[in-house]
Design a protein around this nucleic acid. Sequence first.
RNA 1: UGGGCGAUCGUUCAAUGGCAGGACAAUGCCCUUUGGAGGCAUUUGUCCAGGUUCGAAUCCUGGUCGCCCAGCCA
Length: 568
Amino acid sequence: MTDSNPESPDARTPSNFLRDQIAEDVRTKKYGDAVVQTRFPPEPNGYLHIGHAKAICINFGLADEFGGKTNLRFDDTNPEKEETEYVESIKQDVRWLGFEWDRLCYASDYFGRLYEWALELVKAGKAYVDDLTADEIRRHRGTLTEPGTDSPYRTRTVEENLDLFMRMKQGEFPDGSRVLRAKIDMASPNLNMRDPVMYRILHATHHRTGGEWCIYPMYDYAHGQSDSIERVTHSMCTLEFADHQPLYKWYIAQLGIFPSEQIEFDRLNLTYTLLSKRKLLQLVQEKRVNGWDDPRMPTLSGLRRRGFTPEAIRAFCAQIGASRTNGTTDVEMLEHFQRDDLNRRASRAMAVLHPLKVVIDNYPAGQEEFVDVANNPEDPSAGTRQVPFSRELFIEHDDFREVPPPKYYRLSPGKEVRLRNAYFVTAKSVVKDAEGNVVEVHCTYDPASRGGNSPDGRKVKSTMHWVSAAHAIPAEIRLYDKLFTKADPYDLEEGQDVLSNLNPNSIEILTGAKLEPSLANAKLEGRFQFERVGYFCLDPDSAPGKLVFNRTLALKDTWAKIEKKAGA
RNA sequence: UGGGCGAUCGUUCAAUGGCAGGACAAUGCCCUUUGGAGGCAUUUGUCCAGGUUCGAAUCCUGGUCGCCCAGCCA
């Protein structure tokens, strides 16, 4: 069921500026005969989300197109936020998406080399130890419109800097007491160039190096050099790092090392979706969702549990491409690619979410028979199965109206409809409860219409799904809706937090659903279309005798649209 | 009010000085044993003002609007 080819068969790959740039560099042999080398550099401080999927597809996909290689590199320079749990989940998610890295790397692998290089810069008079507090450094940095001012420690001698920096490493000083800074230009219009901090003192346990280090490199000092060490030719990152490029280049130039180059592209934004790791972490910590893999989360683990497939996500990423414009992609685009994928491969089954009992008055009591049903009309090779039919059935409550509105084609008194793959039935009478609700519909069936066609050529306007009451198996069904009520979750009233736009009805749990018996054998990896209802998959919460299904997506619903329009 | 980046159908991505096109969405019709899927058709766009050119979405100038940057986060 899984496809190792990143490109789905008919996915187009429109040209984009990243591909063009790489093609150009290969053509002009910018890096000689070196292969195209990319990297996907997540910080292990949270779970990967759909936005990362775009970055993964770009980095792995493009390298692959040019016969190059991609490293998975953990950008683990901040021990206070990073955990092994995240490392493991990230590896799992990258593989699940369908990609295999060339080398598994960690920025922390380079701590020794980074330190040596820092020593080199100190000796060259290009870095200095600053005793200013964080607050003082901030004040000296100046503002967007005013230049910064030199730290009084900027003119320390090389010897003193060397001594202090080595002692920082030895652990002689407390957290925050000193930093190592690059000596560049406090008047630069680019704030990143105003003597950026290279190292800070952090007496923290690192998820990989443990207590070995008490000074840690900053992102800017670590990232480019890590790229360079790995001989990354195209270091693709998101737009907000564009301002860092001069610094990225500066370190590499001062050190005279392999000239990796950074190229920025736009971050993915989706309507009705939050894609900030920090905010996602908050949802998890405050238990607004049930963990990182809650099916409502835009994380890859959440999408996976929800029933999304790597193929669909890759096709989506291929379609949205990459550019340098900030925009927001309609989440419907993602949903489209998921429906498209599932429509082709999901096994069909019949399941009634809100059961309404139907009795076929002229069908012999105690009799049962099996009808032949296609497992997937889109794919004849999927074969057929036998589904039990009997006198008492369940149909969807919505599929019967005692007083049908205009254009309602389904069952109503006197109307004949088709029970899918079974028989034509005509509603004759109803049974109501004390409140006047319809609780049972009595029908007659036409024995000659077995299989779903009448020999006399009679047509019906509607086909409905059903399950045999005696054979049905119960299940819990979890329906999901958007996590946020607004297309832009950041569309807020004064003083409000994004979480105030959380959709209170993003999950609905149905406990009375009735499924056709074949679903008892559903596997966790299975993908199903409950006909006329939507796409579903088994949730890991399922236990023997207790099935739990997640709705991945509903089927497109023309009738709902008609009804909505009529109501509006 | 400094610097960087950007602006093409409602959304997203193409068109790389030569007929503005695809996908999503929307609308209508056809088809249908899923009101699903599929097919056909339709609607809507080059931010503004100048300039260069036989010819400009593309190049130039000036505006306008949007995003990013003042962590010892990444």
